[in-house]
Design a protein around this nucleic acid. Structure first.
Length: 513
RNA sequence: GGUCCGUUCGUCUAGGGGUUAGGACAGUAGAUUUUCAUUCUACCAACAGGGGUUCGAUUCCCCUACGGACUACCA
């Protein structure tokens, strides 16, 4: 067999914001495509018109772009197999269903939803272990296998609603090799006669998926484990359509679980535990109450995309080395499907936060400064980019998110309105007050002074006052910034400048006595 | 219920017939920073249980337990 071009696809359905688990699936697809020099496609699976959510498609595109996942072909970029949205490919599917029909691998079924419910109820009452529409029960239903040919024709001609179902063989082992799990074997009796074409003329996921993957020449299907049970059905479809030789390879990814307890990670967990489960913020409408809803996003919560991507990559995969920090390019180099683990992973909020802090600290000040500048602009505070860079430079070691810069650095722009109570009541006294007054007097009336000089002047002053610097240091911070903690004190004073520092000290001395 | 998948520190995981079972996050302690944070160091902490196979099993096999997914004219 000749080497086939690697083509993978991410195929979400536009039923709402993209779940973080979906982002990881997209990421793994992308990493494999890039690693193997292949193509990454994006296909929108919107065959269920009832579940269409406005804005979801745009959301998916924006989320992937934010994460740095580049689509080579598909929705949003086009390509040789356009259209890439299944609703726009509707006319293409019928012929394949017809082919299956003609070959005796599918049949028409006219059962109403009520009849189907009744059938399941009957089977359940009879304690049938696995109630389903299958090789046994189909003989008792209204379909082209049980009805006389002319009656079927009549029903079809009369416009009677119908579906097309796959005729799954009664006794047959269906097997395929999963790249992550090895051989998976399922007996055909466990698979039911899945609907291929719905009564509204749209294909179901099962048919559309196989047809599109084949037409788009997909080489690897990488998707969540929730698809594992239906994979044998898909294998059957490839076989009946005559496409088995070019059937893609399957890889079923382990699921992402809630951080506490067990179970699949869901939107509710994010709300309950206070962390986002979506890459971007999403404003939706509650399906039940009709109330507008707001779901938090990693982007809006201050996570850097490279941190999220690095974290997500490690949820179910590892390079086998001790290295933890990976850029997208490094991930591409290191990635291999064989090293994806089989077992599900719990979502760890601490770890994402740690990755974020890491990437924040690694970022150049010039890239961080805009975050602070933006907050300042909202507050109508003027600040030069150079000064903002100085501030983020001393601040970035101690924050977790970009929005913390403004929160933690306010005192660079506003004199403190109050002073840390605990420190003042414990350490403030007339001697300290006098010493700080002396320091204020010792500062030159200039706007600039280095941290070293500021420190030297402070030491000299304290010595002259007969105090140890350690006794006064924290009070100096409180008097100037109002806070008990912060970045290097003399760096802080240097950014403020001696004039401002002296002024603030005098206010503090007046206020605190 | 049935089918399928899974199970190494609290979490993400490495490893693999003989190892002091390794790393990271979190936690704890110490050092540095005459403050807090950062950083550094140390500590804590795991092979679900039971049977086999074997000289030897955490590793291979079986069973049990537990967890999960699926079981729609949803994807």
């Amino acid at each position: 067999m000749t080497e086939r071009e690697v083509r993978v696809r991410f195929a979400p359905s536009p039923t709402g914001p993209l779940h973080i688990g979906g982002v990881r699936t997209a990421l793994y697809n992308y990493l494999l495509a890039r690693k193997l020099g292949g193509k990454m496609l994006l296909r929108i699976e919107d065959t269920d018109q009832n579940r269409f959510v406005p804005g979801a498609e745009e959301y998916i595109l924006e989320a992937l772009a934010w994460c740095g996942i580049v689509i080579d072909e598909g929705v949003g970029v086009g390509g040789p197999h356009a259209p890439y949205k299944q609703s726009e490919r509707k006319p293409m599917y019928k012929q394949y269903a017809d082919q299956l029909l003609a070959d005796g691998h599918a049949y028409y079924a006219f059962d109403t939803p009520e009849e189907l419910d009744a059938m399941r109820a009957r089977l359940q009452a009879a304690k049938v272990p696995n109630p389903q529409y299958n090789s046994i029960t189909r003989t008792q239903m209204r379909n082209s296998l049980t009805l006389p040919e002319d009656e079927v024709k009549g029903l079809l001609d009369s416009g009677m609603p119908y579906v097309i179902r796959l005729k799954v063989p009664r006794k047959e082992e269906v097997r395929f090799q999963d790249l992550i799990r090895g051989w998976v074997v399922v007996h055909s009796s466990a698979i039911d006669d899945k609907v291929l074409m719905k009564s509204d003329g749209m294909p179901t996921y099962h048919l559309a998926n196989i047809v599109d993957d084949h037409l788009m020449e997909i080489s690897h299907v990488i998707r969540g484990e929730e698809w594992l049970p239906s994979a044998p059905l898909h294998v059957l479809l490839y076989r009946y359509l005559g496409w088995e030789k070019t059937m893609p390879q399957f890889a079923h990814l382990p699921l992402l679980l809630k951080p506490d307890g067990t179970g699949k990670l869901s939107k509710r967990d994010g709300d309950r535990l206070g962390f986002p489960v979506f890459p971007l913020e999403w404003r939706g409408i509650d399906a039940e109450t009709g109330e507008p809803t707001l779901s938090r996003g990693y982007r809006e919560d201050g996570y850097l995309p490279e941190a999220l991507v690095n974290f997500l990559a490690f949820l179910g995969w590892n390079p086998g080395s001790q290295q933890e920090i990976f850029s997208m390019d490094e991930l591409i180099q290191a990635f291999s499907i064989e090293r994806v683990s089989k077992s599900p992973a719990k979502f760890d909020q601490n770890k994402v936060k740690w990755f974020n802090e890491h990437y924040l600290r690694a970022k150049p000040n010039a890239e961080l400064a805009p975050y602070l500048l933006k907050a300042l602009e909202e507050q109508n505070i003027l600040c030069s980019p150079a000064r903002a860079e100085q501030i983020v430079s001393v601040m970035k070691e101690r924050v977790s998110f970009p929005q913390d810069f403004w929160q933690e650095a306010q005192y660079f722009f506003q004199a403190p309105g109050s002073y840390d109570e605990a420190v003042v009541s414990k350490k403030w006294n007339p001697q300290v007050s006098a010493a700080l007054a002396a320091y204020a007097d010792a500062l030159p009336g200039t706007s600039e002074m280095t941290a070293e000089d500021l420190k030297a002047r402070f030491s000299q002053t304290m010595e002259a006052q007969g105090l140890k610097t350690g006794q006064v240091l924290q009070l100096l911070r409180v008097a100037v910034t109002g806070r008990a903690a912060g970045p290097d004190l003399f760096e802080t004073l240097a950014i403020l400048g001696p004039t401002e520092v002296a002024a603030r000290l005098r206010v503090a001395i007046t206020t605190l006595g």
